[in-house]
């Protein structure tokens, strides 16, 4: 009877047994890289807005505090995007003829709101509250990045759940003193030590921080 399997078959079998899992691993690795890539997450990608608003100019150049425009960041879950009126406090006086501010003036005259494109968009089943993070000493820049270097605004972090959990499990590294919570360019070499102190001061307690219902409801 003719043999069903040739001696090569063993080699093929071994190669398959090793190769297929290897391929799966490689594919998985690429998949993971893909998910983390900025192409997928949109990190660092400047987003077109109806008005090319520059945080770089307003924050670094003019030194305007975050809360001048995002006025409910300390009190509400939503930080708030400024009403056209807020833009017009200054721009009714300066750059009154700038072409790029035409949509702002139109909005103010016609009473039609400006439709900004959301940069940091959490899924709808995630409920994030700005006020508690700010109160506990998490600076704006921890999530929003160096906004003062953004001529156009982009996403600074991938906002993946693991990224949220990293901090919820061990928040100390991301805490900063009260007076620099709204600073985007604050830097300290001793954050680890400082963080423990701030955690004590702001009574940061990780109990319950990783409950599902802390963010999902």
């Amino acid at each position: 009877m003719k043999r069903l399997f040739t001696p090569y078959t063993n080699t093929i079998a071994r190669a398959t047994a090793l190769g297929v899992p290897l391929l799966v691993l490689i594919a998985g690795g690429f998949g993971r890289m893909w998910l983390d890539s900025s192409y997928e997450t949109g990190v660092g990608e400047a987003i077109d807005q109806p008005v090319p608003f520059s945080h770089e100019h307003h924050v670094a150049g003019l030194g305007i505090d975050c809360r001048f425009c995002h006025l409910s960041a300390e009190t509400s879950s939503v930080a708030g995007v400024p009403a056209t009126e807020v833009c017009m406090t200054c721009h009714s006086q300066i750059w009154t003829n700038a072409q790029m501010l035409q949509p702002v003036r139109d909005s103010f005259e016609k009473g039609q709101p400006i439709q900004w494109v959301r940069v940091n968009d959490l899924p709808d089943f995630v409920y994030f509250d700005h006020s508690i993070h700010v109160a506990k000493g998490v600076g704006c820049a921890e999530c929003h990045g160096e906004v003062h270097r953004m001529p156009m605004t982009w996403k600074a972090q991938n906002l993946h759940m693991t990224w949220c959990l990293d901090c919820h499990r061990d928040p100390e590294k991301q805490l900063r003193p009260k007076d620099v919570v709204f600073s985007t360019d604050w830097f300290s070499g001793a954050r680890a030590k400082l963080g423990a102190e701030i955690a004590r001061e702001n009574k940061v307690n990780t109990k319950g921080l990783t409950n599902c219902s802390t963010c999902h409801r």
Binding site: G80, V81, A83, T84, G111, I114, Q115, W116, V117
Partner: peptide
């Protein structure tokens, strides 16, 4: 889209 007010009404805090 984020659609803010043109004129923020008194007492209205978004999210509250």
């Amino acid at each position: 889209k984020i659609v803010p007010y043109v004129k923020q009404p008194e007492y209205v805090v978004p999210g509250k």
